[in-house]
Amino acid sequence: MHRLGSGDRLTFRYRAAGLLLLVAHLSVVGWLTLRPRSVPWVPAANLHPLATIRAALAQGPWETAASLGPALLLLAPLGVLLPLATGRLAVRGLGSLTHTVFTGFMVSLAIELLQTDVPGRTLDVDVLLLNTAGVAAAYLLCVRPLRGLVLIRRGPGPRRAAPLPREEGAQGPAPTIPRVGIAP
């Protein structure tokens, strides 16, 4: 697996900025989702996948966007911040996407499970699905352009120095074995 170079200053800056923004984002998400709400009644927990999404889609386009949009956008920045903070921005292929989406899913699951103890909040499996879809969409939309930007700013990869000639020891040069052809 190819990661950005560990000794590169620019890489360190990108990773440090990504980690700082990741911690700030998760702090805001925690504050928004884990503080108690005083509401007159609390709906029952939704454990049926796609039930809330179907109900929102039946309301019309603007109401659908207003009810599903916040769940899609809440954890979407993780799709960019996780690869940036972990140094997986330059990793190509399915590995980085899988890692990012799985981590986003686990963060969303942790938030949903922690909300069960918060007054005024309930578990909704559709929010878990929408949060994960938001992480995947942000990754697919933003990481490839960022990858190009980072690699352009870094320049071409490190050039390897030519191998050093072997030093002759006290016994002289190393013996060479002539190639022998295959007999008929």
Rank of each mutant, 00 (worst) to 15 (best):
H2G: 12
G5T: 09
S6W: 12
S6L: 14
G7C: 06
G18T: 03
L22S: 07
L26F: 04
G30V: 12
W31S: 13
T33A: 02
R35E: 14
R37D: 07
W41V: 12
W41H: 10
P43M: 07
P43F: 13
A44W: 14
N46Y: 06
H48C: 04
I53F: 01
R54K: 13
R54Q: 14
G60H: 07
G60L: 04
T64W: 00
P70F: 01
L72R: 03
V80A: 11
L81G: 00
L81W: 02
L84N: 01
A85M: 03
A85V: 05
T86W: 05
R88S: 03
V91Q: 10
L94G: 12
G95W: 03
L97D: 00
T98C: 12
H99F: 13
F105L: 15
I111G: 04
E112R: 00
L113P: 09
Q115F: 09
T116W: 15
G120E: 08
L123Y: 15
T132I: 03
G134R: 03
Y139V: 05
L141G: 06
R144H: 12
L146S: 03
R147T: 11
L149K: 11
R154G: 07
R160T: 11
Q171N: 10
G172L: 07
I177G: 06
G181I: 00
